[in-house]
Each structure stands twice: as structure tokens, then as C-alpha cells.
Nucleic acid binder design. Structure first.
Lengths: 193, 193
DNA sequence: TCGATTAGTGGACACCGTCCACATTGCTAT
DNA sequence: ATAGCAATGTGGACGGTGTCCACTAATCGA
């Protein structure tokens, strides 16, 4: 039941973003009276937080899938670089293919945190970190350069994603979009050398 | 009156973000009945769009102010670099000091655009562009490198701002925050050379 | 078997966005 | 000067939403 409410909320979020996950409609979808939700969530924000966690999870899954597609051993420099690229493209593709879910994943209400489902499965930040560590072991970058590099890179990709999906750059033509994206990849790659 | 509604909405947005700009409360603040707002705005989203424009304007103003503080001629390389830094710090400071307004500035509803108040006054992107052009004329970077550089840089700063104010990085301690920020400045500066 | 915890129901309240018909104002053209 | 008209604000209403309260039905361990 709790899972059903979250699933329903996730579907609402998919098409309408975080504001569209409305408690009453989620209960309607699962065929129950609105107040039943209060047996599983303290309030609407707690339901939303669960939906946000699920959305973030889906992002992480897509990133993992894209990383897994890259073949090549750990210490292969080219493969390590391709894995970093896979992370970035998966991030951006998710943002563009599922703008509602993407926005929701980062819309966890103030005073709430991501409800840790299984702490074992990876977060987007965790995936990025192992990819960067991998760049070090493959000899692409020095440990000095790698230090805290995840934050600038995450910022760049995340900023590009938000600006081009919900932000002022959302009206760009596909051509301009691809151009700016490749420009940003060059920019990131430049920071590795 | 229209201006009053926008001002009231701006104050609501300042403390509670875009969701807090509720039509009825804005009319209450200006001492009028809710329906009166519909003489000036088609619906709540149009009011919100106006408030978003105002918030974006305030961001641009703060950026301009910070840029103006930098002394040094146009063709002074060090000054040109400091101006770019001023843009970034102003952006981040605005996000941290006024998280509600910052979120609102980028929350213009789908299907709406920023209501162009005076097309003469600068946008954040415009300010960034002239700063980068300035870096070229000062001889800090080549025209080739400058091309479309505003987008990766904007993405980086914007991503950092959103991740650290509303995103998963919002709980960072001030120390960690400063560290990550300076790390990001280095990262950006690295892309100039 | 029974009593308590749990899950869901029904009804109500305040608030919100929005629509309708109406009153008031102030300016313009005769 | 006055008749008419556009603009602005009012009053009342409706459906939708989050949330509270008291109540019922079912499950399960003692």
C-alpha cells in the first residue's frame, strides 16, 4: 500500500513534476480514501519525500545502466574516460526524457531527507566518485587533481541539465542544445588534463 | 496596483520560494479582494511569471553591483579576471542569502516567459558574456576558447548554487561549503588557461 | 477467546484558484 | 453638461486540496 502510493505519486511526478504529486490523487489511483494515506505518511511532504527518493533512484539506475554498457577493463584509460562520459550523458538524457522525474528527484522538501530504502544501492554522487577514482587508478589524472573534483563536475552537469530543461535555456533548438552539450564535455575534459 | 501585487508576491517568494507566492495572499497584502488581481493577470501563473522576472532582476542587480566594485581598466587582465570572479560570487551569494528569491527567479511557469520589463537592463547571461568578452580583449583567453564558454561556466556556477541551496548538498557546513566553492573557482579558472 | 494494535472510512474545516454577475469610477464624444 | 463606455474593484459561489477528528473493521498474540 505504501509502495502503491509512492508508485502512484511517481507517475504523477513523471508527467507534472513535484507539484503534481497530490495526495488525494495518489490515494484515488490506489483506490482508497484520502485519509488512508495518513496511516503511512505523516503528511503530504513525507509522501513527496518518498517519491523524490524513488525518482533519484531511477536516475541512479539509468546511470548504472549506461556505465555498464562501457566495455573495457578498470585500468584502461580510454574506458575510464568513457565511463565518466556515460555518467554525464545518462544524467542529461534522464533530465530531458523525464523532466518531471528529474525535477522531482531534487525537490525533496525542506526538513526532509531522502528516505534511505536500501543504503546499499548507489547514489549518483557515489557513481561519479567511483568513476573519478577509476580515472586515477587508470592513470588519467593525478590524485591531487582528483581531490574533490566530483563537486565541480557534478555542478557543471547538473547546472546544464536544469538550465536546459526547466531553466532559461529550455527553449533551445535540438541543434543548439547538442552544440552546447558537446561544448560542455570539452570543457569538462579540459579540466582533466 | 499591478506593481503592488508583484512586490507582495516578491516578498512571499523571498521567504517561501515560488510555491509561496499565492494569489490571495498577495491581494491581501495590497488590501484588495482576490478577484481584483484578475484585472491585471490572466491567472496565478502570470502573476508568478512577473514575480520571477522581478527576482531575476534582483539577481542581475546584485551581480552588476559586485562587478562595479572591481576597479581596473577594461584591458587590465587581472581586473578582467576579478570581474568574472565577482559575477560568480555574486551569483552564489544571492543564492545563499536569498534562497527563496533564487529559486523563484528560475521557476517561471511552463508556457510563460520572463515578462520583459525594460529590455535595456542586463540579464545575468548578458553580464557573464560581457565579462568573457572582456577577458578576450584583455588578452587572457583566445577568441577560440571564449566561443560559447558562457554556457559551461554558467552551468557550473548555477549547478553549484542549486545543489548547495536546495539540492542534496544543502546541509553542508560553512567550512565544507567554502572549500567546495574555492575548489570550483580553481576548476573554472583552470578552463581559462 | 479476547483485547489491543493496525488499516481504512466518513465527515468536516480552512484555504486556494477561478468563474460569474454586479457596482463604481473616470474619461470622452456628443 | 451629460450620456455612454471602458476599466477597475466587489460579492458570492464552486470544485479541489491538505489535514484533523471520531469511528469501524480486521488481524494477531496472550
Amino acid at each position: 500500500m505504501r509502495a502503491g502510493l509512492v508508485a502512484a505519486g511517481l507517475e504523477l511526478a513523471r508527467t507534472g513534476g513535484p507539484d503534481a504529486v497530490v495526495l488525494r490523487e495518489a490515494t484515488r489511483a490506489v483506490g482508497v480514501v484520502p485519509n488512508a494515506a495518513y496511516r503511512h505518511f505523516a503528511d503530504r511532504d513525507e509522501l513527496l519525500a518518498a517519491v523524490c527518493t524513488a525518482a533519484m533512484h531511477e536516475l541512479a539506475d539509468r546511470m548504472s545502466a549506461e556505465i555498464a554498457k562501457v566495455r573495457g577493463k578498470q585500468d584502461n584509460p580510454a574506458a575510464a574516460q568513457r565511463r565518466l562520459g556515460a555518467i554525464g550523458t545518462a544524467y542529461l538524457r534522464f533530465a530531458h526524457e523525464e523532466p518531471g522525474l528529474f525535477a522531482t528527484a531534487f525537490a525533496v522538501p525542506e526538513q526532509h531527507t531522502y528516505a534511505s530504502t536500501e543504503d546499499a544501492d548507489p547514489t549518483p554522487l557515489g557513481l561519479l566518485r567511483t568513476a573519478l577514482d577509476n580515472l586515477v587508478t587508470a592513470g588519467v589524472i593525478t590524485p591531487t587533481r582528483r581531490k574533490d573534483l566530483e563537486f565541480p563536475i557534478w555542478s557543471t552537469v547538473h547546472g546544464l541539465a536544469t538550465l536546459t530543461t526547466h531553466g532559461p535555456l529550455r527553449a533551445l533548438s535540438p541543434t543548439q542544445l547538442r552544440h552546447i552539450e558537446s561544448q560542455t564535455w570539452d570543457y569538462i575534459g579540459n579540466s582533466l588534463s
